[in-house]
Design a protein around this nucleic acid. Structure first.
Length: 220
DNA sequence: GGCCAGGCACAGC
DNA sequence: GCTGTGCATGGC
């Protein structure tokens, strides 16, 4: 199975990935602007289960921490308390404040103009966080490589298991049409598939990718 | 009670 | 350059 075929198979299996309406990032739309919720979620989800992140986002909304001025100016302890459930709350609070300040001071429209290299200069923003922001908040075609995607790649890719982020990303981007909605949906589908298989719901023989599933070793 | 979850920065080689 | 380690909570 090539990448496109995997995409099509997942698309047929999960027409509406839970929480990812039309393949877009899960959002309450209670941040201002809505894209800021993607930025916050991308930071809060670093090395942590999304369940923990949802609670943190809800508390940020309750606290009114939904715009860059408030986030960058509130006390660090207040922000830390709000996002405690997302783990690593001290460094994540600092990272949120840093990116909020960056957005507030951005000369121009951050959500339309920010470049990947600019994001990567910000402490706390690595390649995956940057690409999540660019793809889902800014609508720029950067394929997001996360832990789930790596497993897919390791099974199908020709590169060594030690391939770096950029190598894996190049492989996906060179095999797929450069299309924002495709990138968005594909990543959503990979996450959806990961959440549905094996660990919580042992589908095994029912897995839509059958023996090609990245979790095949667990299935069969 | 141990292990894992949609990373990242930084120190030490 | 590459590898190991700290960061911290919640669910199973």
């Amino acid at each position: 199975m090539g990448l496109i075929e995997i995409y099509q198979t997942l698309q047929r299996a999960y027409p509406f990935p839970a929480g990812w309406a039309h393949g877009s990032w899960p959002m309450s739309r209670k941040f201002h602007p809505p894209g800021l919720e993607v930025v916050a979620g991308a930071i809060l989800t670093q090395n942590v289960n999304w369940n923990n992140v949802e609670k943190a986002l809800e508390r940020m909304i309750q606290e009114g921490l939904v715009d860059v001025e408030t986030i960058s100016r509130c006390s660090r302890t207040r922000l830390e308390a709000a996002i405690r459930s997302s783990g690593f709350f001290r460094q994540k609070a600092q990272r949120l404040k840093t990116i909020a300040r960056f957005i507030a001071d951005y000369p121009g429209d951050f959500y339309r103009q920010v470049q990947r290299e600019q994001l990567l200069t910000i402490k706390g923003i690595g390649p995956e966080t940057a690409d999540s922001i660019l793809l889902y908040a800014c609508g720029q075609p950067h394929f997001v490589i996360d832990a789930y995607t790596r497993r897919i790649f390791e099974r199908y890719g020709a590169l060594a298991r030690t391939a770096g982020y950029d190598d894996i990303q190049d492989t996906f981007e060179s095999q797929l049409p450069v299309e924002i909605s495709l990138y968005q949906r594909f990543h959503a589908l990979i996450v959806e598939h990961a959440k549905r298989t094996c660990k919580k719901v042992p589908l095994c023989g029912e897995c839509v990718l059958r023996e090609d599933c990245v979790w095949a070793a667990d299935h069969f």
